[in-house]
């Protein structure tokens, strides 16, 4: 168990440039503390986040994904976050049905003035990931370990 306590989750954050990214900036300039587990990709809008980005991140071994955008009604492009909400909602529900831990896909609304909220969200999400442990969903070792149709003894 000792090893697990040393393990630190890797969280990938997709932050909308108008609100959440600015919120993260504010958290930094106002010296709010939040875990260094998050790596951030700036996107023009939360609506830009394709479900494929989320799956790809999990496939590459990120332990969790956070999508964050402007509060409903505040989207710079009027409706981008509403569309993101529908898409993330079905993605999240579907992934949970398949057996992905709910903690691995998280979403938040963080405005440019909510530096404090941003640090809280990242702290919370990181804590959640620590509880579920490393992402082993797409571990390669499983592949080929079992007898598969016609592909015995290869890859």
């Amino acid at each position: 168990m000792k090893q697990e306590s040393e393990w630190e989750p890797k969280l990938l954050g997709f932050l909308c440039r108008w609100c959440s990214y600015a919120g993260a900036d504010l958290a930094g300039t106002s010296r709010k503390k939040y875990p260094a587990n998050i790596r951030i990709i700036k996107v023009p809008c939360s609506g830009r986040v394709d479900s494929l980005f989320i799956l790809k991140a999990l496939r590459l071994g990120f332990d969790g994904v956070l999508v964050s955008g402007c509060h409903p009604g505040d989207c710079h492009y009027q409706t981008g976050n509403y569309r993101a909400r529908r898409r993330i909602a079905i993605t999240k529900r579907f992934l949970e049905y398949l057996g992905v831990e709910p903690q691995r896909l998280q979403a938040s609304w963080v405005s440019a003035s909510e530096g404090g909220k941003f640090s809280e969200v990242v702290t919370d999400v990181t804590q959640g990931l620590k509880e579920v442990g490393p992402n082993q969903l797409f571990e390669r070792k499983k592949n080929g370990a079992k007898a598969k149709a016609g592909s015995k003894g290869t890859a």
Partner: peptide, 10 residues
Amino acid sequence: KASFLPPMEA
């Protein structure tokens, strides 16, 4: 044929 030309082979 899959035993000689598998669906995927390294």
